[in-house]
């Protein structure tokens, strides 16, 4: 008998713990020919805002050691286009769809939550309070506990959907933000968003990114992300979605062992559009090889002294 891989996050029933990280697979459809979207635990789509956003001037991406800097600036067609065009098309896939939302003000988050409340085809909202690439809002809400709490609370008041707060690593103590979001009623936390960073073209003597600075993702940030999950797991009693540089099933297992009940594959999708499917298959293989009956047994297991084999 194969091992149980199903997990539940904030009431979302998932076939397996593997989600996509917002912004890395667009609205999912671009990936449908490389990846069976219905095989995913959940599909987290690109952050949506009230009004369409044009995004930042290019270049929007720069490569750094084992990582990527991006400064897309939340380019998106706005919530009305999402409801009218995107969500109906995603309904043909058997996958929970998580909609990531961002606003420039607390009120915008609340209005987005209200607009999406009752719209069919949404499993949960992910509240992006951690985007480093927009001038107003974004990361500002994710770096101050009281602001984070205010956003989460107002979103919760305006929706019946489960609310996942996405945390920024660009803080002194991520546990303080996690506690604030939990206290405000978040049903789950996802972590981490990108680390702020920048790179300079030494030949042109100018910043590589059009936005000057951007968000760092990819394997380079994985140790930071695993540490954040480890700390937050100890600090709050909420299900966690761990992410940051997951390329393989073994990377995903680090997060699960640190305390994540689900994981998200992000930058790896840019390199290998089938990456999330490979992580799903690799997790199932690991469970079988290790004789583990249910993946939930592994969540946070590293806090309890492990117990795995050495081979």
């Amino acid at each position: 008998m194969s091992a149980a891989t199903a997990v539940e996050i904030a009431g979302i029933k998932m076939k397996n713990p593997v989600m996509t990280a917002s912004g890395t697979v667009g609205f999912g459809e671009e990936y449908a020919r490389y990846l069976d979207l219905s095989s995913l635990g959940a599909l987290v789509i690109k952050t949506i805002t009230l009004k369409p956003r044009a995004g930042n001037p290019p270049p929007r991406i720069a490569e750094t050691p084992a990582g990527v800097l991006n400064a897309v600036g939340l380019q998106n067609p706005g919530v009305e286009a999402l409801v009218r065009e995107v969500l109906p098309r995603l309904a043909c896939y058997d996958v929970p769809v998580v909609v990531s939302i961002a606003g420039e003000t607390v009120d915008e988050y609340a209005r987005l939550a209200a607009r999406l409340d009752g719209v069919p085809g949404i499993a949960a909202l992910e509240v992006n309070i951690s985007c480093p690439n927009v001038k107003a809002g974004g990361i500002a809400f994710g770096t101050q506990p009281d602001m984070a709490a205010e956003v989460v609370q107002d979103v919760k008041r305006n929706t019946g959907l489960p609310v996942i707060a996405k945390l920024s690593p660009n803080v002194t103590d991520i546990r303080a933000i996690a506690r604030a979001a939990a206290g405000a009623g978040a049903d789950a936390l996802s972590l981490i968003n990108t680390l702020t960073g920048m790179a300079i073209d030494v030949d042109r003597r100018r910043p590589l990114l059009g936005n000057i600075s951007g968000g760092l993702s990819g394997p380079a940030i994985r140790p930071v992300a695993v540490r954040a999950v480890w700390q937050v797991y100890q600090a709050v009693n909420l299900p966690l979605v761990g992410m940051g540089g997951i390329m393989t099933a073994r990377d995903a297992l680090e997060f699960i062992l640190a305390g994540a009940r689900a994981v998200a594959v992000g930058t790896a999708n840019l390199v290998n559009p089938g990456a999330a499917g490979e992580v799903i298959a690799g997790l199932a293989r690991y469970l079988e090889e290790q004789g583990i009956a249910d993946i939930n047994e592994l969540v946070g297991a590293a806090h309890r002294g492990g117990g795995g084999s050495r081979c």
């Binding site: 697979v25 667009g26 995004g55 897309v72 380019q75 559009p273």
Partner: peptide, 8 residues
């Protein structure tokens, strides 16, 4: 493949 909207 058009998803990350980086190459604008």
């Amino acid at each position: 493949i058009g998803a990350c909207v980086c190459c604008s």
